[in-house]
Amino acid sequence: MKSYSGIGLRHPHYSAVLAGESKVGWFEVISENFMDTEGRPLHILEKVRENFPIGTHGVSLNIGSPDPINLPYLKKLKALIKRIEPYVVSDHLCWGGTEGKNWHDLLPLPMTEHTIEHVVQKIKQVQDILGQRIALENISTYLLFKEDEMPEWEFTKRIIEEADCYLLLDVNNIYVNSFNHGFDAKNFVREIPAYRVVQYHLAGHSNLETFLFDTHDHEIIDPVWELFEFTVNQIGPRPFIIERDDHIPELNVIEAEARRAEQIIEKVIKPSRGRNEQAELSVHQSV
């Protein structure tokens, strides 16, 4: 079993995964797809969980919304966590609706001191209720607010540090945003505190010429692979998943991408293994 490589568990692959045809090390599931069901989806998830670690990845935490924390939602999420015991619980650094209504979208936040204060306080509440740290993912965005007071990497870093939560670093989203807003993707990665990163996402996107659209319906392009290699070099190896939500191909096609990512990690680890072990030793000694 490869320890780092994972894919998003999607309906078309259920039978292949249950038949033991998958070669990845873990799966990520969309939390909301399993929070309201006691039928086949949950049964499948429990079967998969018997053999694989699972990460739950939400899309409706709505952490940046002006709305207060949605307690019934968190109660259901907590029940799912208790049932599945995921290795990581994640959602997105975004908002998705106001006044109790949901656009079912990952919408950009104004990157301001006021937003940081608000989001940090909400993350702390969520973590208190769930009794554990969560990871938040950097999202793809298409527009920036005039009122933004800082770049995305600073906004992201401040929130995860001040809220004491983890970061799910989506490498494709960094690439998409760097194109859409004209910044240096590598600089974004350099600014991220490595010890906060618990997971990577890799995905394809659509090129609409004047901007990139994060569609998860294409293969990963070479510049994103290159950015992934840079990221692993900079931050270190972490569990990752290949996301595919539309035009979902056969399992072996997605797993080929997972193998490529695994190879990149192996390439990075090998020459630096001695250095990493030395660093790890230093940490233990200082504790």
């Binding site: 656009w103 079912h104 979208d105 919408l107 298409y142 527009l143 920036l144 607010f145 005039k146 933004d148 859409n180 807003h181 004209g182 609409l208 010429e209 004047t210 901007f211 659209f213």
Partner: peptide
């Protein structure tokens, strides 16, 4: 008026991703 002018393209085409998203997903 909410948004910065993007480096390429325009606000309208980019906002359409958000404006039409709910309709597509629903």
């Amino acid at each position: 008026s909410l948004f910065k002018q993007p480096p390429q393209g325009n606000i309208d085409e980019r906002f359409s991703i958000y404006g039409t998203g709910y309709s597509v997903r629903s």
